[in-house]
Amino acid sequence: MSRYGPTSNLLAGIPRASLQTSLENAQQAYLQLSAGGKVESATYTQGDGSKSITYTRANLAQLANVIMMLQKQLGIVCRPRQPIRIGFK
C-alpha cells in the first residue's frame, strides 16, 4: 500500500479553491442525505474536468470517504476518537 501524499494521489494538481468548493458541496450533500434521505448530486473537479455524482442515502459511506479524501488533501486533520480508558487503583 502506498503512503498518502498531497502530490501523489487522485486530487493532486487541483487548485485549493476548487478543492474547498468540492468539499463544501460534498458536505452539504452529506447533511441533506443524512437528514432527509433524498437523492443528492455533488460536483467536484478532477484533473480531466468537472465530475458530478449522484448519491442516495445508501451511499453515505462512499460520500463520507470522498469528504475525508478532500479534507486530507486540504490538510484538514480528521482524527478518529480514541477510546476512553478507565483504570481503578
Rank of each mutant, 00 (worst) to 15 (best):
S41H: 09
R79L: 08
Y44S: 06
T21W: 15
T54Y: 11
E24V: 11
L33N: 01
E24K: 11
A42P: 04
S50W: 13
A12E: 09
S2N: 14
R16H: 04
N9R: 03
I86D: 08
G5K: 07
S50R: 10
L10V: 13
A17D: 15
G13Y: 06
I84K: 10
G87V: 15
G5W: 00
P15V: 05
I14Y: 03
G49M: 00
L31H: 14
Q20E: 14
Q62A: 12
T43I: 10
G13H: 04
K89E: 13
A35V: 08
T45L: 11
A64I: 12
Q20K: 14
A35F: 07
S2A: 14
L74Q: 07
S41E: 11
L70C: 05
S34Y: 11
R57K: 06
S50T: 13
A35C: 07
Y30G: 00
G49R: 01
A17H: 15
T45I: 11
E24P: 08
D48T: 04
S22A: 02
L10R: 11
L31T: 15
P80I: 04
Q20L: 12
Y44M: 00
I84D: 10
T45M: 09
T43H: 07
T56C: 06
A58F: 06
Y55G: 04
L74W: 03
I53A: 14
Q62Y: 10
T21C: 15
S50Y: 12
Q73S: 07
S52D: 10
Y4M: 08
T56E: 05
G87I: 15
Q82L: 12
V39R: 13
S2H: 14
S18P: 03
A29D: 00
L11E: 03
G37I: 00
L10W: 09
M69W: 10
Q46Y: 08
S50H: 10
K72Y: 04
G75W: 08
M1E: 08
Y44A: 02
L74S: 00
K72S: 05
G13I: 01
Y44K: 02
T45R: 09
V77L: 09
L19T: 02
L60W: 01
A29I: 01
E24D: 14
I76W: 06
T7L: 13
L60I: 05
N59Y: 06
N9V: 03
N59R: 01
A35E: 13
T21K: 15
R16V: 03
K89C: 12
N9I: 04
F88K: 09
I86L: 11
M68I: 13
A26D: 01
Y30L: 02
R81N: 07
A26Y: 01
E40T: 04
G13Q: 06
S18H: 08
S34T: 11
L70F: 00
Q62C: 09
A61C: 10
T43W: 06
L63E: 00
